[in-house]
Simulated scan of single mutants.
Amino acid sequence: MNPSSSGWIEKYGSVVQKHQNAFPHFEALYSTLKKSGFVYGLNSSIPEFIELEHSLSEDEKAKINLLHALYFTYRIKGGDDYNTFIEQVFEFYGILNISRAGFFDKWFTGSKTSAKLEKLMTSRIYIEDNIISKTFNSLITNSLLFIDVLLFKHFLNKHTALKKKAEEIEYLAINITYAALSSQEIDRQDNRLSQLLASSLTYISCAENSFDGSYRERLLNNKENWENRYLLDMACLTVWEDHSLDYTESEFIFGIGEDLGFEKSIISSSITDVTDFFKMNVDVIPYLKEKNLAQQFYESMGKIVKKLILRNSKRLLKELSQSAELVALLSKSTMRDLSDEEKKKVQNQLLDIFKSIPSLAIFILPGGAILLPIFIKLIPKLLPSAFDENRIDEEEDI
């Protein structure tokens, strides 16, 4: 399944048919979503039953996990028709004014609701929406997406004031995380986390809200169990991101937990869960990685080129098979440096191939040549298989 090309939502629907009873209740779903990092806004994995042929980017994992969480929230509520689910999710985002599309989006997206939902969910995931910003900014993925799941639960329960509820949850989430940050010594990573959270806000503005502690009165009046569980986990995430928990921070967490109405065993469990998540995923959590600008640029561009190769593997294989000389030169490049004449041949022949594949047009734009060394380095390792990842096989419907 490829969440970066059209048809992935319908593909998920065909795959999930064999796993309809995976989560008998919301507790089981929530626990799984925490282990995957989706609750924390740091997606490290996706559902086990989804088979992949290559690794996914952070935003692709977030897309799958969001759809997965929404679908099983619908299933637990008693829904059983996938097409109805898609229609309801689209209606849900419409109520929240998130489903608005521009003229070109409407023109190119298609008329099917699933196609429109794919476009909508892509815009929901991203904070930055242009390639330059994504290249130089690791804080690009919405970290508060689990709020959508909480709101969808209210939607399914016929809640009549969704936007007001959305503002309330975001207000409490951002206040708790800021209060948690102030309970410890602020460092550079703390600032990166606060930037990520603030840039993920959809319904409120940091500039228009105060962080004076008055939010705790709202906590005492909030009786929604799963909202409170989420808020507790976000507080634990915030104090644990520096891999330590001193006495002051522990006191803060237990104070918040008591305000939210939880017993000490639940609070301790929340701390343990986030501790285990960090131990397993500290090396892949984007905002904890400190890199210089040149290294960040090279790695970001490498990921972009890798994705482009994988997503166009079938057409690339076909085009390359027609150029024996190019294949020979690419093979040589893995063993020795090419001569200037050979490099020129590779560049010219690759650019001819890129002209025939629209999604690789980035290489023929001004400055696109700087990506060619990355392409040449990656292609021998990434090209061998070619397939349509979102094709729905008939046996999947059995």
Rank of each mutant, 00 (worst) to 15 (best):
T334R: 14
Y12I: 04
E319M: 14
V282M: 12
K332A: 14
F152L: 08
K158C: 08
A180E: 01
T113P: 04
L308R: 04
V89I: 11
L288T: 15
Q295S: 13
L293W: 12
E170P: 05
D340S: 13
I266E: 14
R391C: 02
E299M: 03
F38N: 01
K223P: 00
F155A: 04
N65P: 03
Y126M: 10
T73N: 02
L144T: 03
K344I: 08
I186L: 12
Y203L: 06
L156W: 05
S331D: 15
D212S: 09
H159K: 13
F146K: 00
L120E: 06
G261A: 10
K18S: 15
L120M: 15
K63E: 09
Q322M: 15
L237H: 10
N175H: 06
N390V: 04
T32Y: 05
F155N: 03
S333V: 04
F108M: 10
F254C: 02
D233A: 13
L150V: 05
D276M: 13
S183F: 03
W107E: 08
D283Y: 10
P3S: 10
Y287L: 15
N83H: 14
Y215M: 08
I271R: 05
L330E: 11
M121A: 00
N142F: 01
S268L: 13
Y178M: 12
K34G: 08
D129G: 13
I132G: 01
V282P: 00
D337S: 15
E389V: 02
E185N: 08
Y298L: 09
I374N: 09
F92P: 01
G367H: 06
Y178K: 14
P380N: 11
V305E: 00
A115W: 04
D233R: 07
R229M: 13
E249A: 15
F375E: 03
S331V: 14
D388M: 09
S270Y: 07
I204T: 13
F152T: 01
T32G: 00
A235E: 04
I376C: 14
K303W: 01
A173Y: 01
K306F: 00
K332P: 00
K381G: 06
F278L: 15
A198K: 11
K134E: 09
L162N: 07
C206M: 14
K318G: 05
L220G: 06
L308E: 07
I374Y: 10
L42D: 07
I379G: 03
R218F: 14
A369M: 06
K343L: 06
I362Y: 12
P47A: 04
G302T: 06
L144A: 02
N222G: 03
D388A: 12
F152I: 05
I176S: 01
I357W: 05
A361V: 07
S14V: 02
E395S: 11
E227F: 05
Y71T: 05
Y247E: 15
S31Q: 14
K112Q: 14
Q295Y: 07
K35F: 02
K332R: 13
A180G: 09
E58L: 12
